[in-house]
């Protein structure tokens, strides 16, 4: 999905939709918000951007969008340097940053007309049609004529998304896109994201809903205290902490002994559950060995570590605000 002509003009490191090298922001107060960030968002990916509150996600997104000047380091979006190339890059980028911001005294439709008028590339002749299409896409057609101040949080969120979809985009930057939506709305937005991604749009998604990231994202990065803790394919991240073999049994002591004999490491017994790192052999044989040894097995299986566990292991602080 990379624009080859742009790539020729501006050979960047890799062909990522977003590439940062040593990106750093120190605010005037001396606070280091983002510290030497090396982020690579592959073109065509759905990229989850994770981190506790105050970890520097928002500052990073604002630097990528040319709203904040980095203290040092570089950021390239769609192969072009930011913030220098904002006027060339941003028409191809749809963004929802820290929630929607609307003109309460204007209708939903007029809000979109205004944001579209702000884009110098947008064709005024197709403006009304594109606004109507964007409203339809987020399910707001019926409420388009209502003043935005009368909108619920979920409707405002949808309108913010519609603003990001006024044009066909190569990159969507969505900060907490399902915030304030009901479960039905969340599902709609997720399927919308999948639909856009299948059209080849790169989606950069920040969220604190880890199962959401796990459901829609192909890649993810985790930030903590201004630094990048890890990045990569979601499957790899979750697998980074390998799945554990879990045996449920009324005979935990015997089971633990048999598992050790079968080569399982780190065996832990908790009441009727015995967990261990699975040995390098067919698990069917391990199960057979348990049964042969007279261990009554109620449950036998491998539990994959969830992204949430991986996340907590990486940031070590869950979602507490970083101090």
């Amino acid at each position: 999905m990379t624009d080859t002509s742009a790539a020729e003009r501006e050979p960047g490191p890799g062909d990522g939709a977003i590439v940062t090298r040593g990106l750093t922001k120190r605010y005037r107060g001396g606070q280091l918000a983002v510290d030497g960030l090396d982020l690579t968002v592959p073109a065509g990916s759905v990229f989850g951007f994770l981190g506790p509150n105050g970890s520097g996600k928002t500052t990073t997104i604002r630097m990528l969008m040319g709203l904040i000047e980095p203290t040092s380091g570089t950021a390239r979006v769609l192969g072009r340097p930011m913030p220098r190339a904002t006027l060339a890059v941003l028409p191809q980028v749809g963004a929802l940053i820290e929630g929607p911001a609307l003109y309460g005294f204007l209708s939903g439709r007029d809000n979109l007309l205004r944001y579209d008028a702000a884009d110098p590339i947008a064709d005024p002749r197709t403006r009304r049609a594109r606004v109507a299409a964007a409203l339809d896409r987020v399910g707001l057609t019926a409420a388009a004529g209502k003043k935005a101040k009368a909108y619920s949080l979920g409707m405002k969120q949808r309108l913010g998304l519609a603003a990001a979809l006024l044009q066909p985009r190569r990159l969507l930057v969505l900060d907490e896109p399902t915030n304030g939506l009901d479960p039905q709305g969340m599902r709609e937005i997720r399927s919308l994201i999948r639909e856009l991604a299948s059209d080849g749009t790169t989606v950069f998604l920040s969220s604190h809903l880890l199962d959401e990231i796990e459901q829609v994202c192909t890649h993810a990065a985790v930030m903590a205290q201004g630094r990048l803790v890890t990045q990569g394919a979601v499957a790899d991240l979750a697998a980074g902490t390998r799945g554990r073999l879990v045996v449920t049994t009324p005979d935990p002591a015997d089971a633990a002994r048999v598992l050790k004999e079968q080569g399982a490491a780190d065996v832990v017994v908790t009441e009727d559950r015995v967990t261990a790192e699975p040995p390098e052999r067919d698990l069917a044989e391990v199960n057979a060995a348990l049964v042969t040894a007279g261990v009554r097995v109620r449950g036998f299986g491998v539990e994959r570590a969830s992204l949430e566990e991986a996340f907590v292991a990486l940031t070590g602080e869950g979602f507490d605000v970083a101090g």
Binding site: G66, L87, Y115
Partner: peptide, 18 residues
Amino acid sequence: GAGTLRYLLVAPAGRTRL
């Protein structure tokens, strides 16, 4: 104050133009 400035700028309105 209303936050609409960030959306005008990422539209992108251009700071000088705005």
